[in-house]
C-alpha cells in the first residue's frame, strides 16, 4: 500500500472536521473522496499532505510514517514524507511572478539541487506530454484555467511523488475540460504507476475517473466501494439521493 490512513480525527476548536477516517491506496490506484462541501474531505486531504495536523490516527506514505496515533515524526522526517506526496490545489497556486518553466523548475533546482539543464529537460518533457510545450515561457496569468491546472500537475509530478492529490480538480473547468483532465489523471496512474487521491463533489467526474470511491458526510466515511459497483447500486438510497442533486 502506498498510502495508509488509519482512524484519523481532526478537530477545529469544538467542531470535528474529520472523524475516524481510515482507508488505503494501492500503487497506481485512483481513489475519490466525495461528498458535499463541509463533509470534511478537503480537511482529510490537507491532513494527508501535512498541511494540517491530525489530532488522532496514523498516516503512512510509502512505508514512511507521517504520524502514528496522532504523534508526528520530526520536521526533517515530515519533509521526507511530504516529498512523496504531490498536490494540485483547487486554484492551482502557481507562482505568478515565475514563468511556467520556472514554476516547474523552482523546487527541483532550489530544493533538491537538481542540475538546471536536467531539470529543464525534465520539465519540458512533462510540458510536451501535457501539450503545453509552447507555453513554457508564458506567465500563469496568460494561461487558461485548464492550462494552469496542467502546469500545476507538471510542477507536482516533476518531483516524482508516490501519491498525487487533487483538490476539486473540476471546479474551475467547464464540462468539456473535465473530460480532458480525467484522461490526464488516468494516464498518470497508468503510465507512471502513480497513486491518485481526488477530492470532488462532482459525481460524474468521480465515476469516470476513480477506481474506488469513498463517500463522506459530516467528517465520516459513510460508504465505500469499487466505482463500477457502488454507483450501480440502485438500492443505496444515500447514493441515489446524492446523484440526483
Amino acid at each position: 500500500m502506498v498510502l495508509q490512513v488509519k482512524g484519523i480525527t481532526k478537530r477545529f476548536k469544538t467542531q470535528i472536521a474529520v472523524k475516524d477516517l481510515s482507508f488505503s491506496l494501492a500503487e497506481g490506484e485512483i481513489l475519490a473522496l466525495i461528498g458535499k462541501s463541509g463533509a470534511g474531505k478537503t480537511t482529510a486531504l490537507r491532513c494527508i499532505c501535512g498541511l494540517e495536523r491530525v489530532d488522532e490516527g496514523t498516516i503512512v506514505v510509502d512505508g514512511l510514517p507521517l504520524c502514528t496515533e496522532g504523534i508526528y515524526v520530526d520536521q526533517k522526517e515530515v519533509r521526507k514524507v511530504r516529498q512523496k506526496v504531490g498536490m494540485v490545489f483547487q486554484n492551482f497556486n502557481l507562482f505568478p511572478h515565475l514563468s511556467v518553466l520556472e514554476n516547474i523548475m523552482e523546487s527541483p533546482v532550489r530544493v533538491y539541487g537538481m542540475d538546471k539543464e536536467e531539470a529543464k529537460a525534465k520539465a519540458m518533457d512533462f510540458l510536451r506530454k501535457l501539450d503545453l510545450a509552447e507555453k513554457a515561457e508564458a506567465y500563469p496569468h496568460e494561461l487558461s484555467g485548464g492550462q494552469k491546472q496542467r502546469v500545476a500537475i507538471a510542477r507536482a509530478c516533476v518531483l516524482e511523488p508516490k501519491v498525487i492529490c487533487f483538490d476539486e480538480p473540476t471546479s474551475a473547468l467547464d464540462p468539456q475540460l473535465s473530460e480532458e483532465i480525467a484522461y490526464v489523471i488516468k494516464d498518470l496512474a497508468k503510465d507512471r504507476n502513480l497513486s491518485v487521491l481526488i477530492i470532488t463533489h462532482d459525481m460524474n467526474f468521480a465515476k469516470r475517473t476513480a477506481d474506488r470511491v469513498i463517500f463522506m458526510e459530516n467528517g465520516e466515511a459513510v460508504e465505500e466501494g469499487r466505482t463500477e459497483t457502488l454507483f450501480e447500486d440502485i438500492s443505496n438510497e444515500r447514493i441515489q439521493k446524492f446523484m440526483s442533486n
Binding site: C49, G50, L51, R79, R82, Q83, V85, G86, M87, F89, N91, N93, L94, F95, E106, S107, R110, V111, Y112, R155, A156, L159
Partner: peptide, 13 residues
Amino acid sequence: DRGQYEAAEMLGM
C-alpha cells in the same frame, strides 16, 4: 494568498 505558502510548502521549500 495563503495558497502561495502552501504551494511552496508542498514543493519542499
